[in-house]
Design a protein around this nucleic acid. Sequence first.
DNA 1: TAAATATGAAACCAATAAGTTTCATATAGG
DNA 2: CCTATATGAAACTTATTGGTTTCATATTTA
Lengths: 108, 108
Amino acid sequence: MNQTAEATFRALADPTRRAIVALLAERDLTIGAVAENFDMTRPAVKKHLTILEQGALIQVEAKGRERINRLNPQGLQAVTDWVAQIDLFWSRRLDTLKDIIERETKND
Amino acid sequence: MNQTAEATFRALADPTRRAIVALLAERDLTIGAVAENFDMTRPAVKKHLTILEQGALIQVEAKGRERINRLNPQGLQAVTDWVAQIDLFWSRRLDTLKDIIERETKND
DNA sequence: TAAATATGAAACCAATAAGTTTCATATAGG
DNA sequence: CCTATATGAAACTTATTGGTTTCATATTTA
């Protein structure tokens, strides 16, 4: 597991941050616009956005005095990749079990 | 997002717990056997296992005085489902952008 | 049945996380 | 230029988390 995946899973642990990801999947938003969707202060939302950026889940583009927050699919890919790796181990194991059963059946 | 997914993301936030999931993808293990793989006390590992169970990432089977910990693919599925939903929003958005560009091109 | 083994659970501690308030800075607009 | 707007960042508070030690309980097994 690389450093980015570490930060990515940490970022997704919080429900507010997952909600922000869902918001940004639909449209790019400034920090203030994101904050309007939550019952907390703007600085709190800004902290969440920083953690999402560290987890490569969003990218931030400076545009004048605004900061445009945009979803970065690479972060989600890191999650998908990790799950796929676990699934691979798991399926190999099921295959082994199937082999064992088939071998035993053949010996009947 | 349902309650299980909430607990699942929380469970995966910790690197030790992700390592436990990777271990259990290869073979079922007792609590003690899991603990042998980490530089921490057995009670600490047991706490991690409890959190993984709450997140539906593992299932625990009592067998005499032992507790067999087994991977539960349903927990991973919850993660995959969430990512797929975000990807869906994102791809819809790209489609919309593509439509806009095509429409503009047609007007040239 | 007594000793060893595997686990459960409570009490406690230090670090981190999530939120707040407050103030500073940079850009837009009239 | 002056004011409003959008954000940055520090300091602080409280709750949660991840870990420990300690002791109790339930099964095996000699």
